[in-house]
Design a protein around this nucleic acid. Structure first.
Length: 163
DNA sequence: GCCAACGTTGGC
DNA sequence: GCCAACGTTGGC
């Protein structure tokens, strides 16, 4: 079991959108980076903890707690010519892009990058590294504990990532 | 809108 | 397979 940080532009899929679809989760469409795809394809497991991050917006930061809700499967938007995520080079026989469903568990107060940078436990966090653009990054147990227990300080009804 | 960082493309 | 040019990301 692992932990992840996943970036979403709130205009497209905010924590509120995700919470509205809580039961089934939201399909994490639009990842078009091989490294991020490989995380979903090779390493994510149902029940993994997810830090739901709002990016490219007025207040970037962690906005909620979620969990991986499905195995990986082909991203349908790659085959849709009307979609901004359409990839003409991908064919259904051999889909290039995969996604997982993400189920939102809790909306949190917004944890800004500034606040994250202040934490000694988070000095090595990938999202805080200069120039990091990866939309999906692994999060360590220490980083998860710091954010969930110390900064957010919430009790999850349904514990993430505990069997 | 700037720009650093880094991924992708394509000519050779 | 190299690598310069170009495109994208995303905080500020």
């Amino acid at each position: 079991m692992s932990y992840w940080l996943m970036k979403s532009e709130p205009d497209e899929a905010s924590i509120d959108h995700a919470l509205a679809l809580k039961e089934k989760g939201i399909p994490w469409t639009g990842v078009r980076n091989y490294q991020a795809r490989n995380f979903m394809r090779d390493q994510m497991r149902i029940g993994d903890g997810v830090l739901f991050y709002h990016s490219s917006c007025e207040q970037p930061g962690i906005a909620g707690i979620a969990e991986v809700a499905s195995d990986s499967y082909p991203d349908p938007t790659q085959f849709d010519p009307q979609s901004p995520y359409f990839d003409p080079k991908s064919v259904p026989e051999q889909p290039r892009w995969l996604l997982v469903d993400v189920r939102a568990l809790k909306k949190t107060r917004l944890i800004s990058l500034t606040e994250l940078r202040e934490q000694p436990e988070l000095q090595e966090m990938l999202i805080l590294r200069r120039g990091n653009r990866l939309s999906i990054t692994p999060v360590t147990q220490t980083e998860w504990d710091c954010i969930v227990n110390k900064l957010v300080n919430i009790v999850l009804n349904q514990p993430v990532n505990k069997k």
